[in-house]
Amino acid sequence: MSGLYLLARIADEPVAIASDDVESVVKISDIVAAPQSHPSVAGVFALRSRVLTLVDCNYLVTGRRLELHPGSTAIIGQVCGHSYGFLVDGVDDVVSLEPENSGFDIVVSEPWQKFVRGFTVLEDQTVMIVDIAKLVRSEETAAA
């Protein structure tokens, strides 16, 4: 599936996210804590009169919370009718990519396995293609 991809960094690793899944990229300044939620949830925040759940992608991979600072970047996307913000280290670019399904027999480490749906090569660097729906759904099933 070729198309536009958003290049971002999660836990210091470059990832690509299909731009079809991305509604927008926003700076998060103010969040409201949601105690007792899933640990990957950093909190909820308001965006244009909607209330979104902020998922800490860093936590999903490393188990460590990302420190929220002014200018923290989140990728906004919808999964199963709910809007989420995905907190990432940063967003770099939007590029047109051709995912390469064959020729990669890489098995990535445990936490990544759940989110990665393919790989691509960008200027000689291997980039994982992350499915944002899986960022949410793998956690839902784990919780159930």
Binding site: P35, S37, V44, V55, H82, E140, A143
Partner: peptide
């Protein structure tokens, strides 16, 4: 709310 929040 999203399921991740509501699960509690």
């Amino acid at each position: 709310g999203s399921p991740l929040v509501m699960q509690s």
